[in-house]
Simulated assay, not measured.
Amino acid sequence: MSASEKDLEKQKRRHRGPLIGIAVVLVFALGYLIWWLGYEAVEGNAPRDADVLIDGRSGETEADPARGSVGDGPVGADNAPAPPTTAPAD
């Protein structure tokens, strides 16, 4: 079978709108993909609210600078404050 219309200029005019629409969607999708990959790279999967950080290169532990030293964490069984002492009444 052959094409019923062989007027290429008329076909170009008819297909211009859909082709521009496809190009716009592709540009938007590519831009969104680049933004998303950048967001994931910046956000990462770092643990949140960790008292101790582990260096990925050496495996050593280090204090989280935002939370203070390793011993400054929340009060627990290890570092509970001593109960207040009262002097005996005479």
Rank of each mutant, 00 (worst) to 15 (best):
A63R: 03
Q11A: 15
R48F: 09
R48W: 06
E62H: 14
D64Y: 02
A63D: 01
V25D: 00
G73S: 08
L33E: 06
K6H: 12
V42D: 01
V70H: 11
S69L: 10
A87C: 09
R13T: 04
R48S: 13
R14V: 12
A50I: 01
G56S: 14
M1N: 09
G38E: 06
V24W: 08
Y39A: 11
A82M: 10
I54S: 14
P84M: 05
G38V: 01
V24I: 15
A80N: 03
G31H: 08
H15K: 11
Q11H: 13
Q11T: 02
P84V: 13
Q11D: 09
E62P: 04
E9Y: 05
E43T: 10
G73Y: 00
I22A: 13
A63M: 00
Q11Y: 11
R13W: 01
G17W: 01
G44D: 06
P88S: 12
L33W: 14
I54L: 10
E40G: 04
A87Q: 11
P74W: 06
K12A: 11
G56H: 07
S2A: 11
L26I: 06
A82L: 12
L19V: 06
D55P: 05
L37N: 11
Y39Q: 14
W35V: 08
D49A: 11
P18C: 05
E60P: 02
D55H: 01
K12Y: 01
D90H: 04
I22V: 15
K12S: 10
T86H: 11
A29I: 12
L26R: 07
P83V: 04
I22S: 04
D90N: 05
R13C: 03
R16L: 03
K12R: 15
R67H: 09
N45S: 15
I20V: 07
K12E: 06
M1K: 03
G31V: 01
A80T: 09
L53T: 03
P65W: 07
G71R: 12
A66L: 12
P81N: 04
G76S: 12
I34N: 00
E40C: 11
A82D: 15
T61P: 03
V25A: 15
S2Y: 03
R13S: 07
A46E: 14
P81K: 05
V25T: 15
G73M: 02
D72V: 03
